[in-house]
Design a protein around this nucleic acid. Structure first.
Lengths: 163, 163
DNA sequence: CGGTCAACTTGATCGAGTCCAGATTTGGAC
DNA sequence: GTCCAAATCTGGACTCGATCAAGTTGACCG
């Protein structure tokens, strides 16, 4: 997207504050980031911000369709700025790394469920589960099942916060 | 599945305990149920059980592929006994109701991502978002965005626990 | 340049889930 | 039937992500 953060906010009639801009900046520069690491990053760039303000800003941005919130099972919510292009995600079972994937089937894949049970469906969200290249080469680690070992981050993994 | 709970557990060399049987029973009779409401239901049938025992039993059952755990965004983990048939779920944006859906595209839908980024994918999980029949007829409620209003349960929704 | 209401700060609270240490039960061997 | 190690269960404390509440600050309109 070519617009500045200021423009994006103004356009939707939202107040433009340094906090919101910094939050948006943090998400833009580090996709798939968690609220916690946004907090850290914004503090690094702005000096200080409250946890609450981060959550507030994020949810305002989500509401305004500027950022998208994703919540893979077993992980805190993550945020990204790619919106409206219907892409999906791969999650590594063992380290939790997350990457973007474009869907195999055209634009709105699988949007038609076989039997929609009377629901009016407006979005199909796809999450692929597997193992990332890194974890595959570390053979012998436990695989498949329960808790992701919190090793060092692989693809796109935001560094763990250190509050 | 036609086997009894006892058989299922024995087969995999798991200890057969009244707690585990009750937990399994609760999940079987109320699919998409949460750990918390399993707790309530088991207490109703067995008399008493600890929260810990419920979590333990559930995770043993999940490990043994007897039950499947699903975690729709914004909801606590839910459990169901349909395993291995690759079905998916619809979630209602406004009340959180959850229903089963068989996938439109054959058996292993969308399992091939366009570019898998080097990940070895072993499962594709699809979640459809929309509005359930009930919520559609209650026009005028806020729709689409943030927190699901915790109205009365619709399709398959386990009643909220009242501990 | 005020005034007003949205946005921010601080601090408490919540809900889901996990961890721990000790008591109890289970299933298989004898 | 009895015994024993291994597997389970209990209750409580605790973590982590996220939200609520009350009061203060500051962005935008006129």
């Amino acid at each position: 997207m070519s617009e500045t953060g200021v423009e994006l906010l103004r356009e939707r009639g939202l107040h433009v504050t340094p906090q919101r801009l910094a939050v948006l900046g943090a998400v833009t520069s580090h996709p798939h980031t968690t609220a916690d690491s946004v907090l850290d990053r914004v503090r690094a760039s702005i000096g200080s911000i409250s946890r609450q303000a981060v959550y507030d800003s994020l949810s305002v941005l989500v509401e305004a369709d500027i950022v998208r919130r994703i919540e893979p099972a077993g992980s805190p919510a993550r945020y990204e700025t790619r919106v409206g292009d219907n892409h999906h995600h791969v999650v590594c079972r063992s380290c939790g790394a997350l990457a973007d994937v474009d869907c195999a089937v055209g634009d709105t894949p699988c949007l038609t469920a076989a039997d929609d049970q009377g629901f009016v469906i407006d979005e199909a969200e796809v999450v692929y589960w597997g193992r990332c290249p890194q974890c595959r080469s570390d053979r012998g680690v436990q695989q498949g099942t329960s808790q992701p070992n919190t090793n060092q981050p692989k693809t796109n993994q935001p560094e763990p916060s250190k509050r």
